[in-house]
Every structure is written in C-alpha cells, then in structure tokens.
Design a protein around this nucleic acid. Structure first.
Lengths: 202, 202, 202, 202
DNA sequence: AATGAATGAGAGTTCATTCAT
DNA sequence: GATGAATGAACTCTCATTCAT
C-alpha cells in the first residue's frame, strides 16, 4: 500500500471518529471515550492513535463545526448588480439556513462551552463578510447610520453585530427549543430578518 | 435553638449549596457532588441532607433561575396611559436588562441542557405578558400584522416570538461571548430592540 | 408517669423495633439502620437508645426467634397414657407446624448466618425433649436401636438427630421454596414424618 | 501470545475471581466488590473486565454451584439389573455425598437468597432423575403408594419430594451446624436415608 | 496499526454511628 | 428520651489513560 493510500485510510478513520463523536456529544447524556470507541467499533486505545487526548478531540470537533458553518454561510454568493440591502438580507437568511441545516455543529460552535486550546476563538471570517456587506449599504446610503455622530466603521460594526444578534437569536432558539409551539419557522425567520433589516433602510 | 431558628439555618445552608452549585456548574468543567461539597466545605453526604439526588439539586437550580428571571422581567410595570408600542419596547429592554443582571441564571435557564423533572418546562408566564402587550398594539393598529391573511392570534404569536428571538439573541451573545469586541453593549441592545419594534409600527 | 409505666413504653418500643427489623431483614434487599428507623417512624439515633449497635440488635432478633420457636414446639404437650411412638410423631408434627407458622423466625434461627455473640448457640432445650421422647420409645422397646452394638444414649441421640434432620428438611424447603410445585404440603409433611418414625418401630 | 493462550489466562482469572467470590460470600460478613478485588489482588475496576456487574457475578456463582452439584449427583450411575429400591437409596446417598463434598456450592445453591436473573430457577434436572427412579419402584410395586387413591404421577412426586426433603435436611444441617455434636455423620446419613426409603417398601 | 488488560482516580450514593441540643 | 445534623468510610461502577504485545 502506498503512503498516500495509508494516509487516506487514516484520514477516513479520523473523520469517522469525529462524526461519531459529534453524535455522541450532542446526544447529551455524557460523552466518554469508551462509549465513543464502542460507537466507532474500535478499541478505546485506538482513539489515542488519532487524538492525543479527549480534550484535543473535542477541540478538533469544535474547529470542524466552525468550518462547516463558515462554509455554509460562505456559499451565499453575492450576485452581480444585486441591491446591497438584498445582499445583506440574503446573507442573513443564509446564516439561519446553514445553522438549521447543521444544528449539531451550531450547538457545538455557539452553544456549548468546550475546552479551548488557549483562549482564542477561531477568527470569524464569516463575520467579516457581513461587515463588508453592511458597509456597502452604508456607503450607498441605503442604511441610515444608527449613531450618526459615530464613525462609519463603528456604525458598520454596530449594525453587523445587531444583525448577528437577531439571526443568532432565531437560530439558537429554533435549535434549542424544538418542542416550543412555534407559529411557523419560516415566517418567524423572515419576520426577524426583515425586522432587523427594514428598520435600517432609509 | 427554636424550630424556627433551625429552619432558618437549614434554609441558609440550602441556599449556600445552590449558590455554590450555580458557580460550579457554570464554570463549565464538570459538575460533581464531591466538588460541590468541597466548595461548600462540607462532606459529600451532607448535601444529601438537603437534596435527594444530584438531579433534584440541578432541577431546583433551574427552577430558581427561571424564578429569578421571571421576577426581573415582571418588574417592568406597565404605566397608565402609556403608548402600547413603548410598553413593548420597555418590556424588551427589561428582558435584556434582567438577563444581563443575572447571567448565570440566564445561562442555566436558556443555554444549558439540564435534567428536567418530567419533560415539562415551567410555563413561560413572562412570555404571556409579551403576547398580551403585542396584542394591544395589534388591536390598536399600531402594529401592522406581518401576515394579514392569518388570524390575529397567529400574528400575535408570530410577533411575540420574533421579538423574543431578537432579545434572546443579544442577551445570549453578550453573556456567552463577553470577550467579543462589542462596539457598545447599550447601543447594540437599543439597536436590536428598536429594529425589531420599529419595523412593525405602521 | 410511674417508673413501671415508663418501662412498659420502653419495652413496647423495643418490641416494635424488633418486629420491624424482622420484616426488613427477611425482605431480603439489604438491612440498614436507616431503613429500619424509617419503618419504625423514628430517627436513626433513636434506635441506639434501645440497642448498642446493629449487631446487638440482630443478635437479639435471633435470640427472640429461637424463643418463639421453642415456645411453639413446647406447646405440644404429652398426654397421659399416650403411646410413646405417637408422642414422638406428634412432637415432630408440632415442630413443622411451628416452623411454618413462624417462617420468619425459622429463617432467622436456622437459615441465616447472623453475627453470634461469642460463638455459642442457645442451648437447644427443645431438642432435649425430643431426645427424652425417643429414649422412652427405646426403653419401651417400641423403637429398634439402629446400631444395637452402640449404647442406648448414642442410639437415642442418633435417632433424635435423624428425626430432626427429616423435619428440618421439610420445614426449610417449604419455607425457602414457596414457589416450588409441591404436590401437597400436608401430605408431604405427613410422609416425611411417618417415614422417619415408622421405619424405627419394631 | 496467541489468542488461545490469552483466552486461557482470561478463563483462569475469571475462575480465580469466582473462587474468591465464593469464599468471601460464604464468609458471611458482607460481600463487596472492593473486598473481592482485594482478595484477588487486583483493582476493583479489573473485576468489571470479567463481569458486567456484581449481580451478574453472583448469578454466575450460583449457576456454577448448581452445575457442580448436578454433576456430582449425576455421577451416580444406575447399574444394569440393579434393584430399583437400591437405585433410589444409592441416589440419595450420592446427593448427600455430593452436597457434603461441595458445602460452599450447596449453601449457595440451596441456602442463600441470591439475585436471580429473571425469577427462574435452573430446571432441576437432577430432581427429574429422582422422580424417574421412584416411578420405577412404584411401577415394580416395590413401593406402596402413600396415597393410593391419588394417581401414580402424584404419588411419584410426593415420594420424590419427601425423599428430597429428608436428604436436604441432613445435608443442610451437617453443613450449617458443623459444630453440633453429631453422633456420627455416616450413621446419621444412613439412618435418614434408610428411614425414608424403608418405610416405603412394601 | 491496533488491542486487551489494567489501573488510579473519581463519580453518585448510602452506611453505621456520634453528638450537641 | 429523642432528634437533626453531620461525617468518615464504604459502596457499585465508569472514567481517561497507558502499555506490553
């Protein structure tokens, strides 16, 4: 077997472990290396051939969750000639859609306290894109700056953070309280997004 | 010592245990009765003089957290002759303020998965008040119904849920990501609340 | 309250504790002072006002069980002019009857391993009466000595022990295996007793 | 080390654990996994590599005890042309001999209350053989039916149960009361067996 | 690369017992 | 005489991890 093949098998095993780990972790009732090994159908010791420790495994899990969510959010491509406000709106819908499509990853990334390597969070690349879209709207004077006396950067950040808050609110509630009698998930999402956006449009 | 005195000591001890438990639980890295006992400076067995089991203790913790948050939110009194839209706005600010004033309780109540007694959540009395305030606005035609073809009750629920989503979004982010470079907590809160409300006003 | 009255209350409490203890012990799933206290509806500490320790309590329990069984067996009175063989037979029936009437005591006395005070068993007074009845049969030449060459005392003991073995066998099996498909308890007892006795009659 | 070798070591360890468990259990003063581990000279956790739980271990203990006793009793082979009554007699002697040769197993199997898997006792195969031997005697009219009006099956059962009672009586007493001043173990056994059998012979 | 065996530590919980009140 | 509070020790069992093979 070539080195490349060997590496591929390794990677697949690693991925399988992480996949099982995510399920197990979110199932809620305790996450143990033994249970994980049982689910992966390997010996507990085998896990340590792929991850130095339980903590490292969980950190990798979180890292991947962020990656998946970023990827999903990044899939919302800006269209040429598109109205900048619609861009923002579509971006927000994309955020919620991605979160709901990957609830496990969303919970891991935003709703759990996991051991972090050294206190640093992965750079929120996606958030940067939001800021950019918002800035466009402000530049094009399609958004009225909520604090006119503050600088444009500050207003950009403020708006982006407010938008994030709103979409995070729906997304997390829909994920954490699936049993709540929501009137209509779609209508709710639309209402929150439109509310947050429309109130900015001048 | 009189029976009343004894009861008081009991209550204080119970409260001290719950206090330490909240800290320990939210600290994130595992919650054990033994650690709790160490923190309270008593024997592990002593905890069982106050709580039948770990689960019962945690449930009580959650119950109290809800109670505190309800109390805080209920403190927002409607004023006579007040504009119904302002009532909604003030209610939302009260929600966020309460959550931020009791971040531990907020996390316990809304951001963690705790063993629930029998699958039932405490009835969200506070949420009912929101619905009521929203209905007033719809009745007084100060809010435009987001889905005109739907009934007034459905629109009430939809709006209330959207408002809840928005405020929960800010509250939870501010609590969970205290290290994030928020532009301004107050401005952010105002922006989210105003956005959610203003877009409804006709 | 007079001293006598006080003493009577004490005795009653003590008896109540022992009564509850017997039930709890034979219930099978663990015997603890706390559970006992709960059953007696007093505090665990109160038990220690009546018994120095758990062991002492259990020893007293065993002592009383023996007493009750002796009493029951002793109730079989010899009748004037009665055939000595029939005396033996009636005595054996009395033993079984008493055991089955007090199965808890029988189990405590003969079928459990309890901490003994100092390795001594209570003198088996009842057993002495059996020997006496047997000796009468031998004296009257109603029993043929199983080992003619051995002395009369030895034969007496041998027969008495064999009779005891037989009745203990039925009694204990009927108590320990209540679920076994016994053909007929009465017929079984009669068969065992008659078998053991008849084969001795010359 | 080959897989077969490994398996052998496993089996030996398992056997060693069960051996120590039997001793510890019958010693009387409480049976705990920790004490067992100490006796086996391994960590408490190691026991769980061989048995899922304490209950399972004890059940296996009982199962093995029954197996050993059955085996011993089954070793009493019927001889061609043997008098059917002698067959019964020899079978009973075999029962007692086996019990006394394995007192620990006898106590576990017949004199203790152990957690049973699902309320079912192992089918008493040995008991079936006794019934068969008894039936032969009845068929050959060597035994007089104790209840002539009852069917042959009922009489077979009745006699078999009576014989069992008698031998169980001696066996258990000799095991449980080793300190009792027995005249002569052998003479006692013979007396009980002969008594039970002879009284049936017509 | 993979595993079976093993373990020290620690989990939740109950125990017999004491003691101040 | 009785109790509530307390505890140290013990319980069953699971954990993350290591290591020889």
């Amino acid at each position: 077997m070539t080195a490349a093949q060997r590496q591929r098998v390794r990677d697949e095993t690693r991925a399988a472990i992480l996949h099982a780990a995510r399920q197990l972790f979110l199932q809620g009732d305790g996450f143990s290396m033994r249970q994980l090994a049982a689910r992966v159908e390997c010996s507990p010791a085998a896990l340590y051939l792929h991850f130095k420790s339980k903590d490292e495994l969980l950190q990798e899990l979180m890292r991947r969750s962020f990656a998946i969510l970023f990827e999903g959010a990044a899939a919302v491509q800006d269209r040429a000639g598109e109205d900048p406000v619609e861009r923002v709106r579509r971006g927000m819908h994309g955020y919620v859609r991605t979160g709901l499509a990957h609830p496990d990853e969303y919970r891991l990334a935003f709703l759990t306290t996991l051991p972090e390597p050294d206190g640093t969070r992965p750079p929120n690349a996606a958030f940067e894109r939001v800021r950019e879209r918002v800035r466009r709207c402000l530049d094009a004077q399609r958004f009225s700056p909520p604090r006119p006396q503050a600088g444009i950067e500050a207003n950009t950040s403020l708006i982006a953070q407010a938008l994030w808050s709103a979409v995070h609110g729906v997304t997390s509630l829909l994920i954490l309280r699936p049993g709540f009698p929501w009137v209509s998930r779609e209508a709710l999402i639309a209402r929150v997004v439109d509310g947050a956006v429309d109130s900015l449009v001048r």
